[in-house]
């Protein structure tokens, strides 16, 4: 009997294929399948109750789902841009420091070291209307004599969440942009100086184009992070009140694990993944364009 002999490349790849299938591919296929069923966690037999596109139809015709989708895009757009601006500012300042730069770099990364759950609790307390630090400070300084409902008012609640997100993740941009600053060759900057460029012109036309690939990499990483924002929001507002801060993953998390409607939650999840895919493709296209402009190839 002839033994089946697999090609050597396949044998070598087999451990990776098996592991990836077990932890990524099979769960993905199972969740995709379950999104076409009425699967409820509390009724395992419902996993075989095929409902076709019902869950997808329900998700795409649900105003609450699209409102959460819109809010997630808003959070993404605002938080990412603010983090980029602050991160750029921080990196530029740190790059100019001649003494204690290492200590500053380490300090800049402190917020990243906290678990998002702890950051959520920290800002929930800071923005509490009754005993929170912000209101107490404002009242003690005589700036206001009312209890500002930071986590209740529609705009202020989103502001508070964006504040927490920006606080915790600006350093991602800071570190990557700082790496970009270190990588910039000195010649173009010196040439610009010789040609009589102002510092702003040097920054705008020499430094920034060199930094753009780093900025787009940071944007791509953070867009995936923010698009699946859950922990900080869950702790601070749980998507409320009155759905004012409901994001995709607080809605999906509640539907899947509290309401136990995993089939419907998975359908919403798959629709939401398009958001992540869109931003990833967008930022990678931008990254490629920025690299081309610098003559770095594709």
């Amino acid at each position: 009997m002839k033994r089946l002999k697999l090609p050597q490349w396949l044998v070598l790849l087999m451990p990776a294929i098996i592991i990836l299938s077990a932890v990524v591919l099979i769960p993905l296929l199972l969740s995709l399948y379950s999104s076409f069923t009425s699967y409820r966690l509390t009724r395992p037999d419902s996993l075989f109750n095929w409902v076709g596109l019902f869950n997808y139809e329900k998700a795409v015709t649900d105003v609450k789902f699209w409102a959460a989708f819109g809010r997630t895009v808003l959070l993404l757009a605002v938080a990412l841009n603010l983090e980029m601006l602050f991160g750029l500012g921080l990196a530029l300042m740190i790059s100019k420091v001649t003494r204690g730069q290492r200590a500053l770099r380490t300090m800049m990364m402190f917020p990243m070291m906290f678990s998002p759950i702890l950051v959520g609790f920290q800002f929930k307390f800071i923005f509490n209307d009754n005993v929170g630090l912000v209101n107490n400070a404002l009242q003690s300084l005589g700036i206001t004599d009312t209890a500002i409902p930071w986590l209740v008012d529609g705009n202020l609640a989103m502001f508070s969440i964006i504040f927490a997100e920006v606080w915790t993740s600006t350093s991602v941009f800071g570190i990557l942009i700082l790496a970009g600053l270190y990588a910039i060759p000195r010649d173009p900057l010196e040439a610009a100086k010789v040609d009589g460029c102002t510092p702003f012109q040097s920054f705008r036309f020499v430094t920034l184009p060199f930094l753009m690939p780093f900025i787009y990499i940071a944007m791509a990483i953070r867009s995936l992070d923010v698009a699946r924002a859950y922990d900080i929001v869950q702790i601070m507002t749980n998507g409320g009140p009155a759905r004012r801060t409901e994001l995709l993953w607080t809605l999906i998390g509640r539907t899947g694990y509290v309401d136990a409607r995993m089939g419907y939650a998975n359908a919403m999840g798959y629709v939401s993944i398009f958001l992540a895919i869109f931003f990833t493709i967008y930022f990678f296209k931008k990254l490629t364009a920025a690299r081309k402009e610098l003559g770095m190839g594709v």
């Binding site: 509490n128 009754n130 209890a147 500002i148 409902p149 930071w150 986590l151 209740v152 409320g240 009140p241």
Partner: peptide
């Protein structure tokens, strides 16, 4: 305003 403004949280 008889209840704290954050009571919905």
């Amino acid at each position: 305003d008889a209840v704290p403004a954050g009571t919905t949280n």
